[in-house]
């Protein structure tokens, strides 16, 4: 069996989970194993309704008062019971923040491997080989597993939800998990957003985004002038926000916003995975970096190899003319 676990994201099936279902459908066909989709815990019955079209053998609901809201304690215990009982060959989820929070605990509880943040799957006969990015995406690795059950999580956009096969599930069932209040050691409060900024980068047509290559806050006006000359919004990678040079709502990436502007002009950004997942959907990517091996160039349409301190002011000046 291939088991895909759906995640609730504020009432809907998480986009990464939809991609995991696609990965599951493909793995199931390739290996000749049945596909089961599990709606677990938070908002599970609504997730089941939303997933009712997805082509699968089984659609399974696992609800319990103790996991009506997410906790790492509750989810890891519940999923461990389900995996022990059903013995799937592979358990698939999206590589979300929730998955990072609890899936390693299932790995440790059941003593099974968890291959996280997978970008591609290939096959050596009947054995799947999983590719992951390593060394800040400068290299990738192929991973082989030896275990009767393996946990997998997929990087966003490794599979496309456009490839979803529909047709519904043959069987629907309930799985009864056995949990007690004392299983939950932590106390989780409601999710909240920090004060909204009024800046919506997700609708911006042009974005000029700055990374650690800017070296110092004193150099930031160079990039701000360029953005203003182009009529672009300014954004950044995480290090710039961590240093306090730009506010958090300017951040693009897994912990910030995901954008897909007409043009994404990246300035001094190396292209760590955490940043790239937030901007790789841009229509055109132009990147300035002095390191010709910078991973950002792998996804760029235009790779500008040079010193941003020279190029940016000159470009601004020419645009202003």
């Amino acid at each position: 069996m291939i088991l895909v676990v759906l995640e609730n994201q504020r009432g809907n099936i998480h986009a990464f989970s939809q991609e995991a279902v696609v990965a599951g459908q493909q793995l199931s066909e390739k290996l000749g194993l049945d596909l089961s989709i599990l709606c677990l815990g938070e908002n599970a019955s609504s997730l089941r309704d939303q997933a009712s079209d997805y082509k699968a053998k089984n659609l399974i609901l696992a609800q319990h008062d103790i996991i009506n809201t997410y906790s790492a304690d509750g989810y890891s215990k519940a999923l461990s019971q389900i995996v022990s009982e059903l013995s799937p060959k592979y358990v698939l989820m999206g590589h979300s923040y929730m998955v990072r929070d609890f899936l390693p605990r299932v790995s440790a509880k059941l003593d099974i491997p968890f291959v996280s943040d997978i970008i591609a799957v290939e096959y050596d006969g009947d054995s799947p080989i999983f590719s992951r990015q390593v060394f800040n995406a400068k290299l990738a690795t192929k991973v082989k597993t030896t275990s009767d059950t393996v946990l997998l999580s997929f990087q966003s956009a490794a599979f496309s939800s456009d490839d979803m096969q529909i047709g519904g599930s043959e069987n629907q069932s309930d799985f009864s998990v056995n949990l007690e209040a004392s299983d939950i050691k932590s106390d989780s409060e409601a999710e909240f957003q920090e004060s909204a900024s009024g800046v919506d980068l997700t609708t911006a047509e042009l974005i000029v985004s700055v990374g650690r290559g800017i070296e110092s806050q004193d150099n930031l006006p160079l990039v701000e002038s360029l953005a203003s000359a182009m009529g672009a919004e300014i954004a950044s990678s995480r290090p710039v926000v961590d240093m306090g040079w730009l506010p958090p709502y300017r951040q693009i990436g897994s912990s910030g916003q995901a954008v897909s502007p007409k043009l994404y002009l990246s300035v001094g950004i190396s292209g760590a995975i955490q940043h790239v997942v937030g901007m790789k959907g841009s229509k055109t990517i132009m990147a300035i970096n002095k390191d010709e091996d910078a991973p950002i160039f792998e996804i760029a349409d235009y790779a500008i190899i040079g010193d941003l301190m020279e190029i940016v002011p000159k470009l601004t000046e020419e645009i202003q003319k």
Binding site: V134, A140, K142, T145, T146, V150, E292, D301, I304, I305
Partner: peptide, 21 residues
């Protein structure tokens, strides 16, 4: 239970124009 069998330089899928000089 999981092993690296090969490390490699990721192939770019995009046609990238290099601009330098």
């Amino acid at each position: 239970k999981q092993k690296f069998i090969e490390l490699f330089i990721p192939k770019t899928e995009k046609v990238t124009e290099r601009i330098e000089g």
